[in-house]
Every structure is written in structure tokens, then in C-alpha cells.
Amino acid sequence: MIIDVNNLKFSFGSGTLTQPVLNGVNLAIQKGEIVLMTGPSGSGKTTMLTIIGGLRQASNGSVVILGEQLVNSNELAKVKIRRQTGYIFQQHNLLKSLTALQNVCMTLEMYQDLTEHERQDRAQRILAAVGLEDHLHYFPEALSGGQRQRVSIARALAGQPKIILADEPTASLDRQSGHDAVEILKRLAKESNTTILLVTHDYRILNIADRVVELEDGVVKAV
């Protein structure tokens, strides 16, 4: 099991202002699986994703990612999970002062064992794989929305992560580029047997999933 969430509870605020968001979530995802999570706005999808990605601290229940317990974990454990996870954001979240190539290299610079040449080479190949071989040296502002999201996919995949977490990656894209981006993501993930948990509202892309789940009233239900 790559992702194993059991009876996860999470609420924002404290005291009388406590706002429960997750009320005992159970979710298990196997290696190589592509799982889509839908659910109404405000149902806690982003919250759950940030907990699984090691960005937010949970203190109730169990969240085991790649064998690492994240509930009540320390910073070190969370950083370890973040490094093995590729995050794709709703807004591409590229660094605006870096070119496409340099953005992808940011993933690789965390690994000290590569040379500059190796990093560039790898980033170039992954950008070619998402169809951007002609846009290596473009800054994000010179790219279209779909191209930016593809750079962001390349950046998430460059570190050969075990898990990809994507939070509404097509929300700001038109139908065609959204579909293209997700197709590329699926193809590359399948090639490397990477696990994907993708949050979406977008019913047009449900067909890429192996399994679809829904988050509602703080619990996950199969669809």
C-alpha cells in the first residue's frame, strides 16, 4: 500500500470555533493506481491532499505514506515524504523568474548526487516528453496556461516520485489543454508505475482514472 489513510479526523480552529472538515476518512491506494477524488467545494479535498503530501500536520487517526506515519510526525518525516511526492497545483505555481528548464531543475537540485549536466539533460528529456522541447528557455509568463501546467507536470515528475498529488490541475485550463495535460500525466505515470491521487471537479477527465472516490460530509465514499 502506497497511501493508507485510516480514520483520519481533522478540524480547523479550536474551542467553539472548531470546524470539523475530515470526520474519519479511510482511503487506501496501491502502487501504480490512478485515483480521482471528487466532491463539493469546501468538502476538504485540498485539506486531505496537504495532509497526505506532508504539508499539514494531522493529529488524529493514521496516515501512512510510503510506510511513514505522518500523524503526529516531525518535520523530518514530512520533508522525506515531500521529496518523494510530486505536487501539481491548481495554479501551476511555477517560479516566475526561472525558465521552464530551470523550473524543472529545481526538483533535481535537491538531489546532491547529480551534476549540472545530468540535471539539465534529465529536465530536457522530461520537458520533451510533455511536448515542450521547443520551449525550454521560456519564462512562465511567455507560456500559455496549458504549457505552464505541462511544465508543472514535468517538474513534479522529474524527481521520479513514488506519488503524484494533483489538486484540480485542469481547473484553470480550457477543455482541450486540460485534457491533453491529464493525458500526458497519465501516460508518464503509467510508464513509471507512479501512483496518482488527483482531486478534480472536472467530470470530463474521469475517464483517465482506475478508480473514482468522492469526499462528502468528511468521509470518502466509492463512486
Binding site: 515531500r82 521529496r83 505536487y87 505555481n93 517560479l95 516566475k96 529545481m106 535537491m110 517538474r155
Partner: peptide
């Protein structure tokens, strides 16, 4: 800070 948060999410300390 948004970019720094992005890098943090990627595993930068």
C-alpha cells in the same frame, strides 16, 4: 512567499 511555499511543498527545507 508563494514561490517559497511551492518549493517547501517540493521538499526544500
Amino acid at each position: 512567499r508563494f514561490e517559497f511555499a511551492t518549493l517547501k511543498a517540493m521538499g526544500y527545507e
